[in-house]
Design a protein around this nucleic acid. Structure first.
Length: 514
RNA sequence: GGGGCGGUAGCUCAGCCGGUCAGAGCAGAGGACUCAUAAUCCUUGGGUCGUGGGUUCAAGUCCCACCCGCCCUACCA
């Protein structure tokens, strides 16, 4: 069976991970967990991009070798954060690993042999102070370096070039034939416009520094970091080393990227694959920026907030939930401590957590903690079926996390409303058989609804849903939560009478202070 | 210079091809209830739809200009 393969960008290890990195990685994790709960063979890849001048300089500044710098950050910052956030990636690739660098050299050598790469020279504005080329766009007026405020020199460097310019028409044709190849639509439009303006050949080597993969036929050059980095998506799944595995996993179904690196993934990467005759990925999805006070969030500005600061206060599950729920995937989104607090309190604690709490309390109080036998309410059952189907389409197919979660939480609100309307605490006072049967109907409906919600929210909030699953006494009858199928979650009547429902701990405790 | 995106209720945002489109959620106000994490449920939204023109019987919804914010423009995630 062909794998459902999702990748995050491989992150540049210049520094520790921030909220933006975590946002993309959590999204990929939720997407892949969702597909695992569809019963699919899933492959989720993340990793780090470790070559390039910037890493080299940062390492120097810290008095260690580039490799030591990367090792330290990967082991002490990156991998621990993914573990902390419950990221269930299947592999973690680093571009300094031999399994990657060897294949990169082979790939580039192949293109060279095929005549896709030629030797040329690049001329551009160069700042002596920075010791690097600038882009024409970043120069200040009068061609001044934005950092040193000094005039740049126009310098020429011998480079190897990939014939990217020849791929414009084929790329446009591909975009045309696969309207969903680049998403969201706004991102697609930008790329199409860009390619229509005409592409230039791409300089794929550097000779001014040496922290990179050597060009196999000319070791005075190293391969341009982006060519190196993009290839991780194939080298990690067996390209050039394990044909069967590669065949099974490649092409990727979804490359998740930040919108800043969209062009590399939607233009250069497909062209590289075309040049090598490899299948193209199914989709490149660009997510937006997280904004604070209208500004792009980053470590460098004062609004930078670390993932740990948020998880310390709100918890990991709420963290995983918040950004996906609050921001339509693909758009920039405003984030604030206040908004997070409001959603935590309103949606997670008051609506969801409290629903679980009141239902468990009533089954305990009125039925001694044993779920009574009943068919349940038809309207709620119907609503659940629709909710599950729409959430599955939204999250699993369209990567519309906000929309899918919105549906699920609408259902949670509906169940709260159902309880208020039915007033089981009043029905409980009626000791007649009819009254008890009526009470059983109401509480069974609520408990069975929660069973489905636990399944549907498990990809997003696995720790919390496990607590709920335990509270419902579901596992002895239905098996492990992670093995519940999202497609099947909407089928009514799965939680059997006799299930041991216990109060369990509060799902989302009220926030302290601030 | 070129390209793109956005400016709608206190906050975050929906509003597709023009005619119940002036909306949702949250916050706020009032009420009901007590099973529950002082939770839940119901009721309650006149905001120049950035500004100025234009097209039209009719414009947040199309066109033009302008103001403001952000992003990209080939090699920093």
């Amino acid at each position: 069976m062909a794998a459902y393969y999702v990748s995050t960008p491989i992150y540049y290890v210049n520094d520790a991970p921030h909220l933006g990195h975590a946002y993309t990685t959590v999204a990929g994790d939720v997407l892949t967990r969702w597909h695992r709960q569809r019963g699919e063979d899933v492959w989720y890849l993340t990793g780090t991009d470790e070559h390039g001048q910037k890493v080299m300089r940062t390492a120097e500044a810290n008095g260690v070798s580039p490799q030591e710098w990367c090792d330290k950050l990967v082991e002490e910052a990156w991998k621990p954060l993914w573990q902390h956030l419950q990221i269930a990636n299947d592999d973690f690739i680093r571009t300094t690993e031999p399994r990657h660098t060897r294949r990169v050299q082979e790939f580039v050598q192949d293109l060279y042999d095929k005549g896709e790469i030629y030797k040329g020279s690049y001329t551009g504005p160069y700042c002596v102070g920075c010791e690097e080329f600038k882009t024409p766009g970043e120069l200040l007026e009068g061609d001044l370096c934005p950092i040193h405020k000094r005039p740049v020199e126009w310098l020429q460097e011998d480079n190897y070039f990939f014939k990217l310019s020849e791929y414009g028409p084929r790329l446009l044709e591909h975009y045309e034939r696969h309207p969903d190849f680049i998403q969201p639509a706004s991102a697609r439009n930008e790329v199409v416009q860009f390619v229509k303006q005409g592409l230039q050949d791409l300089s794929i080597s550097r000779s001014t520094f040496d922290w990179g993969v050597p060009v196999p036929w000319d070791d005075k050059h190293v391969i341009y970091v982006w060519v190196d980095a993009l290839l991780n998506y194939v080298t990690a799944v067996g390209y050039g080393s394990d044909p069967e595995r590669f065949e099974r996993i490649w092409p990727a179904n979804v490359h998740l990227v930040g919108k800043d690196i969209l062009r590399f993934h939607a233009v250069i990467w497909p062209a590289m694959l075309m040049a090598q005759g490899l299948p193209l990925p199914g989709k490149v999805f660009a997510n937006g920026w997280l904004m604070v006070g209208g500004e792009k969030m980053s470590k460098s500005n004062l609004t930078g907030i670390s993932p740990h600061q948020l998880t310390d206060h709100f918890g990991v599950d709420a963290y995983r939930y918040y950004f996906l729920r609050a921001i339509p995937f693909g758009q920039d989104g405003s984030f604030s401590w206040e908004d997070f607090t409001a959603r935590y309190t309103s949606e997670l604690a008051n609506d969801f957590g409290n629903l679980a709490s009141r239902v468990a309390a009533m089954v305990g109080k009125y039925f001694g903690g044993v779920l009574p036998s009943a068919e349940g309410d038809y309207h709620i059952a119907q609503a659940l079926a629709e909710t599950a189907a729409e959430a599955d389409r939204a999250i699993g197919d369209e990567l519309d996390f906000a929309g899918g979660l919105g549906r699920i939480f609408d259902f949670v609100k509906q169940v709260n409303g159902y309880l208020s309307e039915q007033e089981p605490w009043k029905v409980a006072k009626d000791a007649s058989p009819e009254g008890q049967a009526r009470l059983a109907e109401i509480l069974y409906t609520a408990a069975e609804s929660l069973r489905a919600v636990a399944v549907l929210l498990n990809p997003v909030m696995p720790t919390t849903c496990a607590k709920l699953w335990a509270s419902l006494g579901a596992e002895p009858h239905l098996g492990p939560l992670a093995e519940q199928r999202v497609l099947d979650a909407g089928r009514w009547g799965q939680l059997p009478a006799g299930a041991a429902v216990t109060k369990g701990e509060i799902l989302f405790p009220r926030l302290e202070g601030q």
